[in-house]
Nucleic acid binder design. Sequence first.
DNA 1: GCCAACGTTGGC
DNA 2: GCCAACGTTGGC
Length: 136
Amino acid sequence: MQNYWLIKSEPTVYSWEQFLAEQRTFWNGVRNFQARNNLRSMKTGDLVFFYHSVKNPAVVGIAQVVREAYQDPTSEDTNWVVVDLIPHKTLTKVVTLQQIKTEPILQNMALLRQSRLSVMPVSAEEFGKLLEMGGL
DNA sequence: GCCAACGTTGGC
DNA sequence: GCCAACGTTGGC
């Protein structure tokens, strides 16, 4: 059963464009237990919205999980894990935070309710709505 | 650059 | 175990 997620990245640190150029990445740097638990729950084939935070905040693309959680190679601390991701689709139109805030179906998203969480689940309904808003 | 939200740390 | 202090994230 496929699940949906959303991950945040500051585009000045790691952008969707860099991800497209690399074609595959391990998602490191998560240092929050709730976000870590979400990473651990990701399954191969799950789809993950890629959100640019801070500068022009918006959902810009969709990634796919190709390897489930394993020890973060950039940390000795066994608390931290990464998943491997590949680009799935670039949104035809980015969906801005402003648009998300004004869409009734998306009001319960953790993105709005828990602004500092960097890895969060997305419901099937929210996923569908975001796809539509993204022009896919 | 400012500030609110919130997670973490450390004193007691 | 409580809570104040502090650091970080992220919107504006």
